[in-house]
Simulated assay, not measured.
Amino acid sequence: MARYIDAKCRLCRREGAKLFLKGDRCYTDKCAYERRPYAPGQAGRLRRKMSDYAVQLREKQKVRRMYGILEDQFRAYFKKADMMKGVTGTNLLSLIERRLDNVIYRMGFANSRDQARQLVRHGIFQINGRRVDIPSYSCKPGDVVVVAEGSRKIPVILEAQDVIARRGCPAWLEVDGANFKGTVKALPQREDITFPIAEHLIVELYSK
């Protein structure tokens, strides 16, 4: 599977927003985006007028990179969202938020989505008593996510409660850090996603 192996901080600088790709580092003064809040490269500081297409593309790339989703996967999510009832952009964000790797990150059992994906692939988490090692697994209301008994001493897992205390847990999830368990209480709503995303730009891009 293709994956980005260069410096993650370049992605934040390219998209002009902090994407929280490096966990705790993003909350410190060591964050590269805080020190250099402009695009990478020699022309990074130049101000250029962007076309409507460029604005739409950058918004799509920002969301795709933040969640760590490949282009084909992202387009498939959009097609599914477009066929669902309701607002396409809101449906798209809801589908992406329900990915298991994102749920693990939101619950605080990992410091980043990339780290959550790695933990999921190692079979560390169980859903409703069954081991699941697919990061793109779509969680449903009522699903109970538990850290496997033999994996509860992993340092990253032990930091769960501290992570949640700093970052907070969205209302559609419930976490019992002491028992290494989390529950999906409901489907994520648009107001649960506080990161600045203009999903209508993504809809406009894919609808051309």
Rank of each mutant, 00 (worst) to 15 (best):
G168Y: 10
V146K: 08
E159W: 03
V144G: 13
W172R: 12
V132C: 02
F180Q: 01
R166N: 14
I134P: 05
V147D: 04
G142Y: 15
K153F: 12
V132S: 00
C169N: 06
V132R: 02
V175H: 08
D176L: 03
A148H: 07
P170T: 11
E174W: 12
V156I: 07
A178E: 13
G142I: 04
V146Q: 11
A178F: 14
G168A: 13
A165K: 14
G177T: 07
A171R: 14
Q161V: 03
G168N: 06
R152P: 12
E159F: 04
Y137R: 06
S151G: 10
K181P: 06
A148C: 10
K153I: 01
G150E: 05
K153N: 09
Q161G: 06
G182I: 01
K181D: 02
K140C: 01
I134H: 14
E159N: 05
D143Q: 04
V163C: 01
E149C: 01
L173G: 09
R167W: 13
D176K: 10
G142H: 08
I157M: 02
A160G: 14
I154L: 08
C169K: 06
S136L: 03
K140Y: 12
V146C: 08
V145N: 02
V156Q: 04
V163M: 03
V156W: 01
I154V: 09
K153D: 10
K181Y: 04
V145Y: 00
P170H: 13
L158G: 02
R166L: 08
V144A: 07
A171L: 07
S151P: 12
D176V: 14
G150A: 13
D143C: 00
K140A: 01
E149Y: 01
V156S: 04
R166P: 04
D143A: 11
D162N: 10
R166Y: 04
C169H: 09
G177E: 03
V147W: 04
S138F: 07
W172D: 14
L173W: 15
P155F: 00
V163G: 00
K181G: 08
K140D: 06
I164T: 06
V144W: 09
K181S: 15
P135L: 01
N179G: 00
I157Y: 10
D162W: 12
G177I: 05
I134S: 03
V146Y: 12
L173Y: 08
A178I: 11
N179S: 08
R131V: 05
P170S: 15
G182E: 05
E159D: 00
G142P: 10
R152M: 12
D133N: 10
F180I: 12
G150H: 00
A160V: 09
L173S: 05
P170M: 06
C169Y: 03
S138H: 11
R167I: 13
D143W: 08
G142A: 11
W172C: 12
S136M: 03
G150N: 05
W172I: 14
R166Q: 09
S138G: 14
R152E: 07
G182H: 13
G142R: 09
C139Y: 11
G168P: 05
P141C: 04
P155K: 03
C139K: 02
A171S: 07
I164W: 15
L158Q: 11
P155D: 03
C139F: 15
P170G: 05
S138M: 14
K140H: 10
C169G: 09
K181H: 07
G150D: 02
R166A: 03
L173K: 13
V147S: 07
